[in-house]
Nucleic acid binder design. Structure first.
Length: 647
RNA sequence: GCCGAUGUAGCUCAGUGGUAGAGCAGCGGUUUCGUAAACCGCAGGUCACGGGUUCAAGUCCCGUCAUCGGCUCCA
């Protein structure tokens, strides 16, 4: 290897450390082909010198650099393909409806969309028309060309064709900066775009348009609502099929579907967006609450029960009246105004303030499973994940300022343990900072925000900052988990609050006899029990662990003659606290097995002549594992162990 | 709240202006059976609700409610 590259070559360092000498002026694509034909065919872009942005394959390398090739099937590669697919879709829409105005069309985690302004209301059937127009563009395999234009020229160009959203976007760019445009179809379609794109439209080998939706321009509810067309694209037809299949499977796990099938909850327009928990759902619900109560004993919480309805003064003092009145249920009696509680915190301040508090009592941890009501706007509600009545495993910790970090450390452990117990993947953690509309001083906020950040760092929890997403009274740490179809939900939360103690004038007496203000930590581990159950149903596909299953086992007599024995067996298992069913129906055992499997019963205990004679049951473990015949004591030991270890 | 779609038996769904259907579930009977659906019969509907168009509306139009997909919001 020569020490210095010649005048006409550059040295390109590959991710594996290999150095490739390549003619000056080679494109990323050339380099990929030099590495291997397979890679050359599979690549869609490249990254130079570890920069975050992906560059076009056509990007020319004219100096020594490090390069990593982005292949079509990688996450980055898919992003490029999808972004190009969104351009192709925009082109197709322009061909079909020439008076359309384009806004933005990015790629997303599992596809892409384009927001368009079009007088004609697109119908679901139009998606097929757009798809076939897109296919024409893709079949033409025309080159994606990048061109840089001075800002003012670009502005002029888009203004001339009346693309007002593009004009608005460009106006937001710094003056004098060059604007990059991408065109394909020999210039018949041109769009403002940072890139990168695949070399030609033919690279988009597998795509599908998915749905239509409304979306506000720039995500602001005050702006015009545009039409959003969602689609997805993959590097191969096979990948698209795999994805489609997975989507189907996810739909089968939808908690609204399973909730109905498994008898967990129902909904009724008589109380919109408010679940009715059926007996089976209530067993799960109460078991979860029981589990939290067990933890509360361990972690020194004290549970309280507080009123449902309060005079408005409470919420005026707390600030909720000003911030959330529209979302509260209010009522008037005796010419006094009352509100149904949308959260427990203000009432806990009354318990705190009901006696003179000493530093010795802190941290004071008050837990409350109180039912909350929030008027969620129509259109935002759904299933168990966003409801108008719910309860949280809510608690408020009243702590001295120097106890904050310690408490949060304990909470992080509690939360981590919970996700592990349920077998959830670790949640994504966000630190939500001060929102525009908030209470308190800058000093309070920065103290609170850095307090949370320090606690996270000290406990080695990786997190992302979510600017302006905090509660109006304080910053928070949110723990985000996904449902079956990838929608994200906040379950656990830890919120720091210097405001309520101030507003309700809470105090404690220190060792020195002076009075200080406690800090409040609002926290929920499961979050809303309703939402938690919704996510739990989807994560487990209804296969609840033994300790949570509403019916942990079902005894299946083969014929009527075996029913008395079966009944006895059920009674003795129930006497040990297990939830056992009996299928005494007039059906063949095959049908009973089928019914029980559909209900996801963890254990099926079959009894026939043999079992009666031997004093056993034949145990079948979900979904279809034969554990053989077991005497009663062995079954009991198994169930007790499952219960004890929460498996 | 906004954009769009949907609403037929308990559930899943068919029914494109001319007499409301199927499967499963339910009920009655027969069958007593060995690991994913035995057989026969019966019953079940103001086609979400309210208006309108029409000789005639589940079907077309308008409104309301609810649900679903998004957007915005989420103490």
């Amino acid at each position: 290897m020569s020490e210095t590259a010649s005048q006409n070559t550059v040295r390109v360092t590959l991710p594996d450390g290999r150095v490739l000498e390549t003619p000056k002026g080679s494109s990323i694509r050339d380099v990929a082909f030099r590495i291997g034909t397979g890679l050359g065919k599979a690549c869609v872009g490249g990254r130079v010198n570890g920069a975050p942005e992906i560059l076009d394959l056509r990007f020319v390398i004219d100096s020594d650099c490090s390069l990593s090739i982005v292949t079509a099937d990688s996450k980055d590669g898919l992003e490029v393909i999808r972004h190009s697919a969104s351009h192709i879709m925009a082109d197709a829409i322009c061909r079909l409806w020439p008076d359309v105005k384009l806004s933005i069309g990015p790629s997303t985690d599992d596809g892409f969309y384009y927001d368009i302004d079009l007088d004609v209301k697109l119908q679901p059937g139009d998606l097929e028309r757009i798809e076939s127009e897109m296919t024409k563009v893709i079949d033409a395999d025309s080159t994606f060309e990048r061109c840089e234009t001075p800002r003012d020229a670009a502005l002029e160009r888009f203004r001339a064709i009346g693309e007002k959203y593009k004009v608005e976007l460009i106006e937001g760019f710094p003056a004098g900066e060059a604007i990059s445009l991408y065109r394909h179809g020999g210039g018949s379609f041109e769009d403002l775009c940072r890139g990168p794109h695949v070399p030609s439209t033919g690279y988009v080998k597998a795509f599908k348009l998915l749905s239509l939706a409304g979306a506000y321009w720039r995500g602001d509810e005050k702006n015009k609502m545009l039409q959003r067309v969602y689609g997805t694209a993959f590097s191969s037809k096979k990948d698209l099929e795999v994805w489609s299949k997975r989507q189907e499977e996810a739909k089968a796990r939808d908690h609204r579907k399973l909730g109905k099938e498994l008898g967990i909850f129902m909904m009724h327009p008589i109380s919109p967006a408010s679940p009715f928990f059926l007996p089976r759902g209530t067993l799960i619900y109460n078991r979860l609450v029981q589990h939290m109560r067990e933890l509360y004993r361990k972690y020194n919480y004290q549970e309280v029960i507080t009123p449902q309805i309060f005079e408005s003064e409470l919420f005026k003092t707390s600030g909720h009246w000003a911030h959330y009145l529209d979302a509260m249920y209010v009522t008037e009696k005796d010419e006094r105004q009352f509100g149904v509680k949308p959260m427990n915190c203000p009432s806990h301040t009354y318990i705190y303030a009901s006696e003179k508090r000493s530093y010795r009592e802190l941290p004071l941890r008050l837990a409350d499973f109180g039912r909350l009501h929030r008027y969620e706007r129509s259109g935002v509600t759904g299933g168990l994940t966003r409801v108008r009545t719910f309860c949280q495993d809510d608690a408020h910790l009243f702590v001295a300022p120097d106890q904050i970090k310690g408490e949060i450390t304990i909470l992080l452990k509690m939360i981590t343990d919970i996700y592990e117990l349920f077998g959830f993947t670790p949640p994504r953690v966000f630190l939500a900072t001060r929102p525009a509309d908030s209470l308190g001083t800058d000093e309070m906020w920065s103290k609170a925000e850095s307090g949370l950040a320090d606690a996270l760092k000290e406990n080695g929890v990786a997190y992302t900052i979510n600017p302006g997403d905090g509660a109006f009274y304080g910053p928070k740490i949110d723990f985000i988990t996904e449902d079956a179809i990838g929608r994200e939900w906040q379950l656990s939360t830890i919120q720091l609050d210097f405001n309520l103690p101030e507003r309700f004038d809470l105090k404690y007496t220190t060792r020195d006899g002076t009075e200080e203000r406690p800090v409040m930590i609002h926290r929920a581990v499961l979050g809303s029990i309703e939402r938690f159950i919704g996510v739990l149903i989807e994560q487990t596909s209804g296969n609840f662990p033994f300790w949570l299953a509403p019916e942990q086992a079902r005894v299946l007599p083969i014929a009527d003659a075996h029913t008395p024995y079966a009944r006895e067996f059920v009674a003795s298992l129930e006497a040990s606290g297990h939830r056992i069913g009996l299928d005494g129906s007039n059906q063949k055992v095959g049908a009973k097995i089928r019914d029980a499997r559909l209900m996801r019963i963890p254990y099926l205990l079959v009894v026939g002549d043999r079992e009666v004679a031997e004093g056993t049951v034949s145990v079948r473990e979900r979904p279809d594992k034969d554990l053989g015949a077991m005497p009663k004591d062995q079954v009991l030991a198994l169930f007790n162990e499952l219960e004890r270890t929460k498996k």
